[in-house]
């Protein structure tokens, strides 16, 4: 399992960096979806099946849809980032920075003897459904209110015309 976790982690990291460095918006959206999917798989491997499902469906699905529709609303068929943004050039040192940062963190952890437990704690308590519906009612209400706020936002941004 550990190998699979590492592979997913690698995918996640690599595609995330590509998404950030890409000049094309559609490329970025697709690589972000892949990142999302990789993290979903990672969650599944860690034992979070419901969260993985949500991640894959909502994040790599819904967010990509939102993103691409935003792109198409803003620039029609022009999917390439205009040259003046030059994100790939502006972030070209990002991989090196990340490698250095990761290495530094590794060294720090190794030097200070920092290590998280190996995991596999015995899962206790309620199931996901019971937890969500019987101990996190406040969060559920919060989700609801967030969704109606989002709806109001959509009304403001996409339905109402400019009057002033």
């Amino acid at each position: 399992m550990i190998v699979a976790v590492y592979i997913c982690l690698g995918f996640m990291l690599a595609f995330g960096v590509i998404a950030i460095m890409s000049d094309g918006l559609i490329t970025a959206a697709i690589t972000l979806a892949v990142t999302s999917a990789a993290s979903g798989v990672l969650m599944y491997l860690l034992g979070a099946k419901w969260a993985a499902a949500f991640e894959i469906s909502v994040c790599s699905g819904l967010v990509t849809v939102i993103f691409i529709s935003a792109v198409s609303l803003s620039s029609g068929d022009k999917t390439k980032l205009p040259a003046e943004y030059q994100d790939s050039r502006r972030t070209k040192r990002l991989p090196a920075v990340l490698i250095v940062a990761g290495a530094a963190l590794m060294c720090a952890a190794a030097l200070t003897g920092f290590s998280l437990p190996a995991g596999d704690a015995a899962q206790t308590g309620l199931t996901f459904g019971e937890t969500l519906w019987e101990t996190r009612q406040a969060d559920v209400w919060g989700q609801m209110i967030a969704l109606i706020t989002g709806t109001a936002a959509i009304v403001v941004f996409f339905k109402e015309s400019e009057n002033r």
């Binding site: 979070a48 991640e55 998280l116 308590g125 996901f128 019971e130 969060d139």
Partner: peptide, 14 residues
């Protein structure tokens, strides 16, 4: 995964 409260963690993530 580490503290054995995976259900709670999933609720958070959702």
């Amino acid at each position: 995964f580490l503290n054995g409260r995976m259900a709670l963690a999933q609720a958070f993530v959702v």
